[in-house]
Design a binder for these strands. Sequence first.
DNA 1: TGTTATCAAGTTAACGTTAACATATTCTTC
DNA 2: GAAGAATATGTTAACGTTAACTTGATAACA
Lengths: 353, 353
Amino acid sequence: MRHDIRRKPATLSDVAATVGVAPMTVSRVISGNGYVSEETREKVLEAVKKLNYRRNGLARSLKRQQTDTVGLVIGDISNPFSTELANAVRKTLSARGYNLFICISEHSAKEDITALEALVDHNIDGIVVATRSNKEGDERLTEIANSGVPVVVVGRDFRHEAVDSISADNFKGGFEATQHLIDLGHKRIGFIGAAFEDRGRLKRLQGYISALGKHKISIDERLITGRRGSSTDTPGYSTEAIGYEGMKRLLSLPKPPTAVFARNDFTAVGAMSAAKEAGLAIPQDLAIVGFDDTPLALHTTPPLTTVRQPMRVQGQIAAEMLLRRISNKDESETEERVLDCELIIRESTVAQR
Amino acid sequence: MRHDIRRKPATLSDVAATVGVAPMTVSRVISGNGYVSEETREKVLEAVKKLNYRRNGLARSLKRQQTDTVGLVIGDISNPFSTELANAVRKTLSARGYNLFICISEHSAKEDITALEALVDHNIDGIVVATRSNKEGDERLTEIANSGVPVVVVGRDFRHEAVDSISADNFKGGFEATQHLIDLGHKRIGFIGAAFEDRGRLKRLQGYISALGKHKISIDERLITGRRGSSTDTPGYSTEAIGYEGMKRLLSLPKPPTAVFARNDFTAVGAMSAAKEAGLAIPQDLAIVGFDDTPLALHTTPPLTTVRQPMRVQGQIAAEMLLRRISNKDESETEERVLDCELIIRESTVAQR
DNA sequence: TGTTATCAAGTTAACGTTAACATATTCTTC
DNA sequence: GAAGAATATGTTAACGTTAACTTGATAACA
């Protein structure tokens, strides 16, 4: 059998002409709406098969003014929690008959915007945005929300009267991580993964600062280290290399910290390497806490104490919020939900008995 | 300023009416094609701003018969190499003005098909498929390729006269991993992550078998263990849990292996845990090789010997192949490229001096 | 028997763009 | 100053579908 390659695909009218009915009749057969006699239906289906007909989604969407598709913008899919988020969103949506298109914007405002535009251009029915805040991106996002596209943000600091948001309580997570170190008796606790100036935008750092404050431990800016994010672009995601460098810097201080809270697990792992290289024993000489509970955390030596955020739940709730917005266009109350994180204590802070 | 929420978005004609010109003139201003006087252009742009006009991509795509968008179907975005692949594909495409929409199909033929359909429904200009082979999915993929949609497969065993393919040389990778173990003097080498019956579809396992064969080491089926994939659905991706179980099974044999080759790093890590639990020293009592060189591999204790496949390059080449197919519709030679893997020797096979 | 449902189609007019062609004006150039 | 080129706009007709309306049967019912 020869292939039909490159021939123009058949349209409703082609099918209609073959059978000898009106295009609308074929449409009725395809969509299953309206009356069609059994006889006609069969003839149509036969022709559909013969012509290899497939309905043109573009035309359909244009006419129906909806695409049954939702977009998800994430920054870095390599992050395990992005995966969990995406899967949860997809699962929830697909149960309601929606498709999910994912766009990745690798940490730059420009790509963030490109992704948003691409999705809007395809008239998706709604967008879940899970990238970090940035000025230009927020502006564009505001325009999009203004124009009536349902939007939900996940873990992004963005406010708009028609945009719901969901995030983990990073402040509390950071607070509890630090509190945990304090409870273990540490007084000099470093923070790796962001600069002190970033504290306005970084909840985890705020939690750290707040916990120290609560226990009357004065903030030593030299103990807070990391590459500073520019304000117009995304604050650089903190990597293993940054953790390594940061730890080196902390260890070179006259009075190095006895514990560090790293902004995320990657950073923590980098810090761990630097500490080991310097001959420090973990957790005896240096306690380390990470954030995110990536698969990595379980396999470091020693296993990493970290903070887990409920990504699956966030994804599910985000999808549900969006579906509500989509179906219930006039809904006006914006919802803002914050979920608790969970401190997972492993051996990088507490020595095994 | 009040928002324009929920009002129907302005169209070309709305803008045209405001300015007092024909819609086509506005279209010319927007697209930048054709002659428009400076004066008119300015008036139009003003109205565009005032009405918050945004061109409807759906209508445009329908008319132009192209969407400047490419779809990527991947199985599991949590896998670090999926990330690399996606990023490389995106980068290459965006340099040529194409958007990338990613669909994930979490390891089931049904979702694989759903993803393909969703993309085809949106009339994307081409598809990169990086999911594992499965019967129904392949059938659908054949239909899609037949209908003239440019398709490129990555690491998927699929053949079609109009579909290019790119993959890593998993056979050779498996061969070299096994060869490495043999070179170290091992005679009883296990394979974890697939059943012996899967060998028809699993190149890594074939490489293992071939390497043993070359060195006149007879194949002991008891040494090959893993959950068997069904033929209609995707062979289950091998996880850490499977590695753990598999290792336990191998260790319970009367004569356990002295080395194992795991189908991927996750599986290897699971196997490692089981081995440690049994009191075995790695690599002295048991040598382990993984596959994929995930970030994990560097951080296990001891660091994992593994095989790296060049995902970035695969992604780039896949995108280039696809772009060529898209722009050069009548091209007929199908291209099939296979890239070398790289064995990365770490301490899970060779003890540190 | 006439009135109303129910069923099975067909017709029309969008959805919002743009390619292709047509028309009108102005500018060159010999 | 006539012929052609360049510029500036308008008109028409799709792209492929479906919502809404219309028409004509046939069946159901009082």
